[in-house]
Amino acid sequence: MTASDPIIIDSRFRGPDGMGNGGYVSGVVAEAVGGPAAKVRLHAPTPLDRALQLVRDASGARLMDGDRLLVEAEALGKPLDLDPMPSPPGDEAIARAKAHFPTAEQHMAPRCFVCGPLRDPEEALHLITGHDAASGLAADRWVPRGDLGGANGLVATRYVWAALDCPSYFATGLVDTPALLAGIAAQVQRRPAPGEALTVTGWSLEADGRKLHSGSVIHDESGHAIAMARALWIRMDEGL
């Protein structure tokens, strides 16, 4: 049986100008799949402020713009192919990473819902996960606000996926090079509560030409990994 619902990705949740943040959109579609883990493929940028269709059936969920497939998701069905960091980085490592975060002029998406330096922290995640070359990590602290709460008062899954997204971009070492999220698989062990003290960390896995693979993880205050993801980024610059 197939079910279809209209959905609009509000411009609040943009990534690069004119398109939805890949992690947030992936989380929206993953919510339609249900379960703790999902695999998402992004086929085309998601337009903002326009009626789209979220289609669910036995195989998973798809985000459609008319006949055009934008995003598809399915249950992961196996353990995530990622060895998470055993513990979050300390204050010094996070400070070094944040010090290397790009300026608004350097940033490829300065109005991004997750990491945009031009966004008001009161209405965006505002994760400043700069990349520390010495440790190879991109990291920042995250205390989710109350307006991110979903079912049972916990942070909605889509925001957990969003928080796992941009740190995995900066973990590749890119600063102002445009790259788009092409795929992400995530496992959410538990959804955090608003106001909970968290650490978000990204690290590089491998690179193959324009294809960049990276991981990201969210640790709670006790050092437990509560969510993790493996991402595929595609560089959009020329000359590779």
Rank of each mutant, 00 (worst) to 15 (best):
E92Q: 15
G209Y: 12
V188F: 09
I184N: 01
V200M: 08
H219G: 10
L198Y: 07
Y169E: 02
S59A: 15
M236C: 07
V188I: 15
G20R: 01
R50E: 14
D140H: 05
I226H: 08
L181R: 04
A133P: 12
R210A: 15
A207R: 13
G183F: 06
E123L: 06
L164A: 05
V188E: 10
P178N: 14
M228D: 03
A32V: 02
K39V: 06
S87P: 01
G146N: 11
I226A: 09
V188Q: 03
D83Q: 15
G209E: 08
A151H: 02
L48C: 12
S204G: 07
G35Q: 07
K211D: 09
V200S: 07
P45A: 12
D220H: 04
D57K: 03
D220A: 03
T177F: 06
V28A: 00
F113D: 03
L148K: 00
A38T: 13
D49A: 11
I8A: 09
D10L: 08
G202F: 00
W142I: 08
T129P: 00
P117R: 08
A30D: 01
D81K: 14
P110K: 05
E196Q: 13
L52T: 05
E31P: 04
K39H: 12
A163C: 11
S26H: 08
E72D: 15
R50F: 03
V71F: 10
A186V: 09
P86Y: 02
V155W: 06
L80F: 10
Q53Y: 05
P110M: 06
A186M: 04
A51Y: 06
G90V: 05
A58D: 13
Y24P: 02
L164K: 05
R56M: 01
A207I: 01
A97C: 15
D10T: 11
A95Q: 13
L127F: 14
L76T: 05
K98Q: 15
A186L: 04
L240P: 12
M236R: 13
S11C: 07
Y159A: 11
G18F: 12
R41C: 11
A32F: 03
R158C: 14
V28Y: 00
L42K: 04
G146V: 10
V143L: 07
H219S: 12
D176C: 04
D49C: 14
A99E: 10
D147A: 10
C115F: 07
R141M: 00
D17V: 07
P102N: 05
I234Q: 09
G136I: 03
Y24F: 13
L63W: 05
G215P: 08
A171Y: 03
D120Q: 10
D5N: 01
L164M: 11
A133W: 00
M19W: 07
G22V: 03
A207Y: 02
A179C: 14
S59V: 04
A133V: 01
A124V: 05
A171K: 00
V29K: 00
V188R: 06
A182R: 13
A3Q: 08
A97L: 02
R190E: 15
G23C: 12
D132Q: 00
